[in-house]
Amino acid sequence: MIKLENISKTYASTRALDSINLTILPHKTTVVIGPSGCGKSTLIRLIIGLIKPDKGNVYVKDEMLTPINLFTIRRRMGYVIQDGGLFPHLTAKENVSLMAKYLGWDNDRIGKRIVELCELTKFPVDALDRYPVQISGGQRQRVSLMRALILDPDTLLLDEPLGALDPLIRFELQNDLKEVFHTLGKTVVMVTHDIGEAGYFGDSIVLIRDGHIVQQGTLMDFVRTPTDPFVTSFINAQRSPLESLGE
């Protein structure tokens, strides 16, 4: 369980997050959604300690995040960003195995784990020796996911993992990702700005606007019992053209 307690974070003069209290349930997928610049990326980067809150604390399994336990806690989390964040000087395989190697895993163990992960993420084993520039954007996200999963973490943090992909690949990867989440049953926090994606993945959706949580619940709650007119207008703004055809 991850808990954010009374978190505030200000950049220069803009307040990214203002007194946020949020509990993320284990083994569920929580999707953080909101317009761009609302502070949703800040939230996920706070959880993995890439930035420090000005006020408030982050708890991971009741352990408060401090500079001392940061490295161990990070190793129990996997982090995937929009364009993958792969290290361009390393092959796909080297990217995936970097952390395991650093921790002294032997080659056998690493090899086995990578084969498992390839199967899970549907990444072709024969492309493992390619460099990031040599594979497609979708494949890069699969490698990034493998890298995040290599140590079998409890939690997966994904910051707009599908944001940079074209629609067909995005659709394919959405399905595969959902399957991975389902198979592994991990705690997942995912940031997106797409309400459809949020509904597809999220057991729980958190809508953020101007550094405040507007509503937390399922997509159904958002549609049926919006707590604020903004919730409705945010959903309507992203309604698919196909839906209106059906009406």
Binding site: I48, L50, R74, R75, G85, F87
Partner: peptide
Amino acid sequence: GIRESAEALGLPSGARLRLVELP
């Protein structure tokens, strides 16, 4: 993104420098 990915993996500063940043 790349710098933070290395950090998020849980690599300490020295290892990040050696394995990612300097190369």
